[in-house]
Design a protein around this nucleic acid. Structure first.
Lengths: 161, 161
DNA sequence: GCATATATGTCAATAATCCTGACATAAATT
DNA sequence: AATTTATGTCAGGATTATTGACATATATGC
């Protein structure tokens, strides 16, 4: 497809263009997780630990089942990861006073510190990308990612915006 | 100083805004790989097989070592995955006539078909997101992802554009 | 109050995936 | 001829995920 036709019909998306987007996502996601992965390895943790720390930090007081439904993993898988984080005091559980079956999750001071270190690397990377791309690019970035996210996740996490 | 003000930066990007970007990337990448993962599972394949099929399809005739350096995994890891794809005739190897040590990789007809099915799901998802977000958003999306990608990968895969 | 459902946790077996390390072969390069 | 490069393989082990079964405490509906 020639450039002239692309200009004439900007919504025509070439296969090449779409595949380039796939590669961009692949490399961006890999490089985005590279630094935190290296830090986590020093603690004997993996990416799953990061996700738990991140989401608990972003939703203090969430329940175990809420966390499970965000992560979409089995409770047995979460058990190992969460168990380590509890044992090593990065996360603490508090029985919900309103429903004593539920265990609400919180970051400890130590957990918050690790969360800060990990997020700092990633937010710095994003901030750099935002600065380089310009403010107007940020809206496009967000809009396209939202379009890629499935309806279910979008409703649950990004609807109130 | 409050946490939200700690990470000062020239564009006044709030901590909340940057964290939202992290979540968007997480959910987008997960949902983006969900459909292909389900298809691959029917063949007894995983995401690693997808990556091999994708990159060989996008770079027909590439060598094993080139593939290894793109994927950043060990040759032992690739061996299992590539061995399966060779055994089941999704990929074929041809000895390079110019350097008979090298084995050039190609998709077979069968491999190309699978590649098409997998990519179709993902390109449809991206095309939908592009259409919804509008042309100007696509440029922003690409620009920010490029900024997130590390220098090394950017030079190797996106420099000539 | 009793039966049922929910939230959480745990034990066991299994499978997938990736890793390190060692070694082997063929072919190219110096 | 010696060395390096490209590829492949075997062996062992670590990690992470899965399914399935079961246990406990608590809440809820009737």
């Amino acid at each position: 497809m020639q450039a002239s036709l692309q200009r004439a019909n900007p919504l025509f998306l070439s296969d090449r263009e779409l595949r380039k987007a796939m590669e961009l996502l692949f490399f961006a996601y890999r490089d985005f997780t590279e630094e935190p992965d290296a830090i986590l390895a020093e603690y004997g943790f993996g990416r799953a630990h990061h996700r738990v720390i991140y989401f608990v930090g972003a939703n203090e007081g969430m329940s175990v089942s809420e966390l499970l439904s965000i992560l979409k993993i089995t409770k047995q898988s979460l058990s190992r990861v969460l168990g380590q984080l509890l044992n090593e005091a990065f996360i603490e559980q508090v029985t919900d006073t309103e429903d004593r079956r539920r265990r609400l999750l919180f970051l400890t001071e130590k957990g918050r510190e690790l969360e800060n270190v990990l997020s700092e690397r990633q937010t710095k990377r994003i901030a750099k990308a935002y600065r380089e791309a310009g403010v107007e690019a940020v809206a496009g970035f967000s809009a396209v990612l939202r379009g890629i996210i499935g309806e279910e996740d979008k409703k649950r996490f990004f609807d109130n915006e």
